[in-house]
Simulated scan of single mutants.
Amino acid sequence: MFRRDPKFDNKKVLLVDDDVYLSKIIKSVLDILEVGSVTHVKSVKAGIELFDSKYYDCVIVDCLKNGGKGFELIQAVRGGSDDAKIRTPVILCTAFTEQQNIYRARDMGVNEILAKPVSPDQILLKLNCALYRQREFVQAPGYVGPCRRRRQIDWEGREDRRNPGGAAQGAIPAGNKKEAANG
């Protein structure tokens, strides 16, 4: 069916989903993956209370049902004062994979998106990425979460002016921009 590497036996996962059927499927897969502890709650309020009182290695939340209340949990994770908890990976499980929803989740600091219908392979992939292949974490005004850049591309173009070393090669001086634009 799927590989069980890496090991998850020492990991604690908080699963927040009011869909009894889907949460049983996800919990069953996490059990097969030998996740150390899976705590399931049906409400965002209960999820926030548990998250505030205990440490988890990962949070899996269904956000977009019931008016998107799950986003409140993501805000609680990323908006807290405990640095270790702020960095807790968050996996959004959703059937609403339209671009605007994905961008909203990304901009709120979600680590991974698990699209419904879920499969064991996708649960393994997203959990592995969230726990063992984490992107650099960013804490900046207006954004807290993993670096939104997923691809690491070697740039072969001109140097960026923001890099140490000054302006880009061939940069147009401020006074000549209009002339350059007009030909």
Rank of each mutant, 00 (worst) to 15 (best):
V29T: 15
V29W: 14
D31F: 12
I32K: 11
L33F: 10
E34C: 13
E34F: 14
V38T: 15
V38N: 02
H40Q: 11
K42F: 02
V44T: 15
A46L: 08
G47N: 09
I48Y: 03
E49Q: 14
F51Y: 13
F51M: 12
F51T: 11
D52I: 00
D52P: 00
S53I: 04
S53C: 06
S53Q: 14
S53K: 14
S53P: 04
K54E: 12
Y55I: 05
Y56H: 11
Y56L: 09
Y56K: 08
Y56S: 11
D57L: 06
D57A: 02
V59P: 09
V59G: 09
V61S: 08
C63D: 05
C63H: 04
L64Q: 09
L64C: 08
K65I: 07
K65E: 02
K65V: 04
N66F: 04
G67I: 02
G68L: 05
K69R: 13
K69C: 06
L73H: 01
Q75N: 13
V77P: 01
R78N: 09
R78T: 12
K85P: 11
I86S: 01
R87N: 07
T88F: 07
P89W: 10
V90T: 12
V90P: 05
V90A: 08
V90E: 10
I91D: 06
I91K: 07
I91Q: 08
T97P: 00
T97I: 13
E98Y: 09
E98C: 07
Q100R: 15
N101Q: 11
I102Q: 05
R104M: 13
D107P: 05
G109Y: 03
N111M: 05
A115F: 02
K116Y: 11
V118Y: 04
V118Q: 05
V118N: 06
S119W: 01
D121T: 10
L125C: 05
L125F: 14
L127V: 08
C129Q: 10
C129R: 05
C129I: 01
A130R: 12
L131Y: 03
L131P: 00
Y132F: 15
Y132Q: 08
R135G: 01
F137H: 12
F137R: 02
F137A: 04
Q139H: 10
A140Y: 09
A140K: 15
P141S: 15
G142N: 09
G145V: 06
P146Y: 04
C147D: 14
R148V: 13
R150K: 12
R150D: 09
Q152G: 04
I153N: 00
W155S: 06
E156A: 02
G157S: 01
D160G: 00
R161S: 15
R161P: 07
R162G: 10
P164M: 14
G166F: 11
